[in-house]
Design a binder for these strands. Sequence first.
DNA 1: TACTTCGGCCTACTCAGGGG
DNA 2: CCCCTGAGTAGGCCGAAGTA
Length: 309
Amino acid sequence: MISAEKFLETIVEKARMEPKSIRDELKEIPTEGLITLLKFCQQRAGKDLPRKNYGYVHQDLVNILGEKLGFKVEYGEYSHGVDGVWSYGDITIIIESKTSSQWLKIEQISNYVKKKKASSGLLIAPDFTQDQVKAAIGFGNVRLLTTEGLSKLIKLKEMGKLKTKDIVKMFVPQEAVRVDYVIDIIYSIVKPLEKPSELEVKPQKWSYEEIKKYLDDVKRRNKYTYAYYKVLSEVDDRISREKLLKRMGKILGEEVTGFQLAGVQAGIMMTVIKKMKKERIDGKDKDGRNFWLNEKYKNLVKRYFTEVK
DNA sequence: TACTTCGGCCTACTCAGGGG
DNA sequence: CCCCTGAGTAGGCCGAAGTA
């Protein structure tokens, strides 16, 4: 098995293939591989052909990664003009990628952004010099991103922690005084993690006395819920939704529909799970097609219904 | 009144078969 | 050989209904 780097080396240096012709093949490579190739191109690139081709492949790779970030990407020409134009809604971002920051001319790109009336310019390189950073601050309409940063950003996007909308906020210059946009971005990353922490109170076990008291209350107040438990106590294994409804109907002497059963489930959710914080004494599959008694309490529930007669 | 689930409805997507 | 169309399916949304 030939490595992707080796393959690239062969076609760039030996076969002198036009980089554009391998663009579609590059698109098939998973993200992790693209990042590796990106770094490989940075190491190999040089002024002279065929090594110059690494710069062109590098340009394509950056654009492909742009597509992965959720942008609509316009691929640029190789030897002149911008490397790419990424757009999202009515935002357009001029892309300039360099295998090494030494080729980077901030002013040129800043002017290009102005000329094209783009939202911003994004410069992607392995690293940046102090002077380049200062220049970028001075011009205000460009953003600098290292390839390392790009790689992290893609990972966050693919993990579903970041939306393209958030990425746009980072790439397009914002008013620097109000920091809300930074908070928005952080919030959208952290938000999915909020929920689980609170719900992880472990459910308590039942004694027979508690089951008896609970089912006595149910008998007094909730006829559908009582019939539900009674049917479950009469079957050994599991029972289908349809059979369950029919047998509940027989006990109650009326037709029982899915709505009543939904009510029963809602009631159990509110009392047993939320209020009493207990384990369920019943069970059901994910889509509610089959129902049964919790194996742990099966005998206790059956005992209740034989004693209660 | 608030909360939960179900079932119906709608939409988007896939895939196979037929026609150009 | 390719494209269009319709059937089947997966997923999201919303109203209805039971319970606390």
